[in-house]
Design a protein around this nucleic acid. Sequence first.
DNA 1: ATCTTGAAAATGTGATCACAAAAATAATTA
DNA 2: TAATTATTTTTGTGATCACATTTTCAAGAT
Lengths: 231, 231
Amino acid sequence: MGNLALEPLDRPDGMTTHEYAHRRLRQAIMVGSIRPGESLTIRGIAEAMESSPTPVREALRRLSSEGALRVLDNRRIMVPRMTADRFSELVSLRSVLEQHAARRAVPHITERCIDRLEEVDRAQDEAIARKDNAAALLLNQEFHRTLYSANPEQVIMPMVESIWLQLGPFLGIAMEHVAQLYFVDRHQEAIAALRKRDEDAVAAAIKADISEGIGGFERAAIENLLRLAGQ
Amino acid sequence: MGNLALEPLDRPDGMTTHEYAHRRLRQAIMVGSIRPGESLTIRGIAEAMESSPTPVREALRRLSSEGALRVLDNRRIMVPRMTADRFSELVSLRSVLEQHAARRAVPHITERCIDRLEEVDRAQDEAIARKDNAAALLLNQEFHRTLYSANPEQVIMPMVESIWLQLGPFLGIAMEHVAQLYFVDRHQEAIAALRKRDEDAVAAAIKADISEGIGGFERAAIENLLRLAGQ
DNA sequence: ATCTTGAAAATGTGATCACAAAAATAATTA
DNA sequence: TAATTATTTTTGTGATCACATTTTCAAGAT
């Protein structure tokens, strides 16, 4: 039985229950507060957020098609376990996807947009300084999201978000077992390249940002971490 | 009121109703038999497939997170309309995604797998010969899917499928208004490159396959087609 | 002690119902 | 006739229930 610990979450007026359930579960998975391998029950979730099975089921379907959850043959639902191979696939795909997203955003970048990126980057640095890993993680995503969303016709963000979501639970484990997850980023380099509207340089900055950030986990380190976490 | 024309579909034993509904709607959207802009109703679909709202809602949530459907502010659900800009985004993303998928598959390619690719390509040629556009479209997808799925740890297929699904309705329109959708493909070139385990050549074949296939639609042609279809 | 068997509880699933919001239609007014 | 208002219908939403399957757990047998 899953005595589920779900962070309460602000619920705007008019938000449907299934959307709220989706957001709340998504956040929990993203920051790794639901353990990979841990199985979720519809009734358990419904009880935890004081609603009923129907909207919870809709939320679970969405999350499973976003890759955040996996439906087993027994129809049980769980957060998928990470493996070193899957991690490698996710990171290399993330790199390719985000480089492309960045390139397609460059023609649409405005000064207003760059200001916003500066602002988010500053907030992230502050989160890092006060060692708030979870906040830093979310602000890092916000930086990337802001950049890629500058392209008004973009169709890539749902896929990028899906990758982040699939990497989330592992990052949660990493943050628990690594004393201090040291953040390196190439955000200033990316911003400088954006100011010059230099697509290649922007893509290079994003590529480096990813390969030096989450891509920095070596195979042995991943396997070790997973073993430590009992996965 | 949508007097929905849904092709009947084989339903294997033990398949849940929501999964069946998902498959059936997905297929209808993929081949373009549901018009962009046409709005769907939960009860209408439930009635059309002789079930009830609950499983239909689950299917609709999945499809909307796959990009096949869009939820409006009024909570109405419709097949999104295509624009020339969105088409361009989808095609360029498809090219990048599938080149990457192909590269990551190369190390895992077996002779068995190449045989299967030959077989699918042959079937597609036959479908083209008998001018069965819908079958040719599905077999073309099967070729690509077979290739990318050779990588056992791949995480990219859901995203590729999502792109296909988003392009589907437009292809449906194109097939109706263009006398004969002439298929060009680089499948044999891809297979030859696979035999040599040459990643670059495989990626090049896929890139050409896409840019000469669906990428061949020029901006003016797209806008003209959409105008013709009353979009 | 280990395995097997049976009952009880838990779980996913799908249909149905009530409610509120939205859309469509009819009636009324300017 | 055109615009506005009122009424009816349609629609999305969420809770509840019954059913079948699976899982869990305790009692019994080897």
